[in-house]
Design a protein around this nucleic acid. Sequence first.
DNA 1: GTCTATAAGATGATAGAC
DNA 2: GTCTATCATCTTATAGAC
Lengths: 201, 201
Amino acid sequence: MRARCYALSEVANPVGATQGKRERLVESARELFHEQGVHATTLADVAARADVPLGNVYYYFKTKRDLVAAVIDRYLDQAGGLVDASGRSRSPKARLKALVATWVDQRELVARYGCPMGSLCGELAKCDTDLEREPAEVFAVMIDWAEEQFRELGRRDARDLAESLISGVQGAALLANAFRDPGILARQGRSLDRWIDSLTS
Amino acid sequence: MRARCYALSEVANPVGATQGKRERLVESARELFHEQGVHATTLADVAARADVPLGNVYYYFKTKRDLVAAVIDRYLDQAGGLVDASGRSRSPKARLKALVATWVDQRELVARYGCPMGSLCGELAKCDTDLEREPAEVFAVMIDWAEEQFRELGRRDARDLAESLISGVQGAALLANAFRDPGILARQGRSLDRWIDSLTS
DNA sequence: GTCTATAAGATGATAGAC
DNA sequence: GTCTATCATCTTATAGAC
């Protein structure tokens, strides 16, 4: 919902003076938060990557916290898109495996910097701002969606299974990052696929 | 190996003038890194909790990086102890479940601040220091140990299973932390227990 | 070994010209 | 709306008295 507000202001002035500066700032921040972490990323870093003067950042975001919130909103939208992208045409099992594949396909990036959402979540969970709980919403979107799929499979324990799935992906991402080894994510992805295939209603 | 060196200097002067100050500093740092994260924790914070004047910290640790390294070493020792603690008397399956229980028993703390080692690992993975890979050693100790247990069960795919186990625990810890819900860790712990029980050689 | 004071540098945020 | 200059603060680290 918050995301929509931001999007609207962009749409209202698509090629105007602001020229997607806000958009560039958010994307630059998202990348840098992933690569270096929120705390280690300065507003000067973000401004430089977005090719925007430092002082101008504050025109778009009153505080650094607001910029972080905007990045979370982008992930929220992305999670929604990820979930929508799994078309209704295929079977629930295929859809679940498609979700897992999203991480496996990005295993090089994940091994280098961790899961974008997972690492952001871990970092913000330790913050004193009012953002601690926000990234959990992103996971909630994915878990809810996975739960639906498991329910379509006729599983009563759909919620548990959904938590297991996301939990498995996130754990694999963490280990892959720790060891800088994309192979861990690939292997765990195959394990999860086999697990999904083996499920009976 | 690094851990032993530090320990020796303590043993050499168990109740001397330094009076375990170094020990207090490491333990305070460990707690604060867990609660707030490494980046957000200042040496002043550590000094205050350890009841040591700020300037004195630098007598024990030349840089903040060195203090972080000492905390990792403590986790390495702890991981070794955790693994040793699982006595040889019980079955491999019981030993594996005992490992899982270690996290489940601490679910309140994990839900609040995340897995101590997992969150440290995630944070350091993004660092530019030479410490990025260190926390992975802690996981390596646990994975190697779990692999042994699975091998005793006669599993050829012991390595994969060991990665799945630790990955499952870490993912559950991450979600529990994101949602501030110890229940997730409890449920995933039960799932992992059932999974271990269901394994055949 | 212990501690105070402070230097040196980085960073979030603001004021105000254009 | 845009951007420069700068303030105020925080944090690592050091110098040097005791």
